[in-house]
Design a binder for these strands. Sequence first.
DNA 1: CCAATTTGGTATTGGTTTGGTATTGTTGTT
DNA 2: AACAACAATACCAAACCAATACCAAATTGG
Lengths: 256, 256
Amino acid sequence: MTPAEKIFAIERFQSSDSAPLYLRLKKLVQDAIVADELKQGDSVPSERDVAELLQVSRVTVRKAFLELVSEGLLVQKRGSGTFVGNPKPRFEQPLSRLTSFSEDMRLRGLKTEAQWLSRETRLPTPEESLKLSMSPSEYVARFHRLRSANGEPLAIEDAVIPHKFLPDIKSVENSLYDALDANGFRPVRALQRLHAVALDAVEARLLDLKEGSPALFIERVSYLPDGRIVEYTRSHYRGDSYDFVAELNLAPEAKS
Amino acid sequence: MTPAEKIFAIERFQSSDSAPLYLRLKKLVQDAIVADELKQGDSVPSERDVAELLQVSRVTVRKAFLELVSEGLLVQKRGSGTFVGNPKPRFEQPLSRLTSFSEDMRLRGLKTEAQWLSRETRLPTPEESLKLSMSPSEYVARFHRLRSANGEPLAIEDAVIPHKFLPDIKSVENSLYDALDANGFRPVRALQRLHAVALDAVEARLLDLKEGSPALFIERVSYLPDGRIVEYTRSHYRGDSYDFVAELNLAPEAKS
DNA sequence: CCAATTTGGTATTGGTTTGGTATTGTTGTT
DNA sequence: AACAACAATACCAAACCAATACCAAATTGG
């Protein structure tokens, strides 16, 4: 018996409960998530498979899944499947702010400029497909720019957005998030990964530095409320002019 | 039977697993690397050869190889072939957790080592006085160490604590926060500032890198519940092995 | 040096799997 | 009797998987 068959066991589903079938299934999935039997990112059996396991129609399964999707517990993608979403940020308190470069600079009172290196609609690279969880045949909008503040180049930013969230790439003038917001697709959270790198010749020239100079490399994936990935951005921040500041709180589980 | 034929044996490839062919092949290669059957730099049979061995199309093999390439496990060169890459593990630290290096590594189940570079009580430098908001005539305890995980140097840490919070500097064996906790002075929050730097000759030698290699420089000031500053630490994390990860939430005030 | 060969790289197509929608029938409630 | 909720069947379309065919860089051998 596979884990999925265990979770979607007809015995769990059939109960003395007289609730409608779709509500019972909904609760079954909720309980499995709470019990950590289904974790974020896990794939859920297809609607047809669940329908067969539980001996109900696929539309009944669908109705249950749709409610879970609207609550962020599940994420669905036609042709791909159904996956457990991330309904709640892992940390109890927001510790860092999700802002775009423009907003960040504005908050600091700096005048920003952006030089377009590339702004185009094209197909994603395999790596971008993976990070964005999208089909390689689905178009993306790419915004590649050199960001400066007070006339000084500070960062190279390479953002990739699924085209469907930003049909008019010309609408992005300064703030990427403003443009996404205008289309009703503002991200609410993101996962960011960063480490130090040495700039290659091209990057160094753009940032007015020597090849090999240290830079902060940041890779970010951001999410809509319903769990869909809306942005994948890679940035290089020059090491000598850009500090990231974070205010931290004690991690409760770190108590020894 | 050559080693390659053994690795890419159709028996290993065919399994009861119902996963797509390309994912099975991907896993086969990953497993061979983990088992050290394929080592860094080894050449991998050509796509056509693997396709023939496993009786699938070359594009199916290609799809598996492309994902492995994007993850750094394989490297491809047209006309030359496919080789095992250098998938060195990268350590990750959540950027939003206030933990010491020891706790962080322990949470990951890694064996950590620390080599003392310096552990002494002395007067603070002017910079340290400023950061700690203390009198230059007040003693501090300094803990300067090279931190490693699994035998590999990862970070240089230079922590300064006002002496009054840590009278017995010998009590710090592994975790600085454990020792502070034992004295009732565990920090509850911190302000951290980070950017990329190039390692100088001394730092580079400690971390087994070339002078000028990129590193992440983190400066942290942490606070007791009553607002007193309890720690000022400067660390260098090598850029090639250490990722910081942050999960972010939308800043409400950033709405435009 | 150059043609042939080997290798990775790309475009296109068709079948299958998956989610998405429309419509219809049954049952309970008002 | 009318209506809403529940649950079904049937059909549509996006995405994935896997194939064939062709292109081009790099290597090899004469």
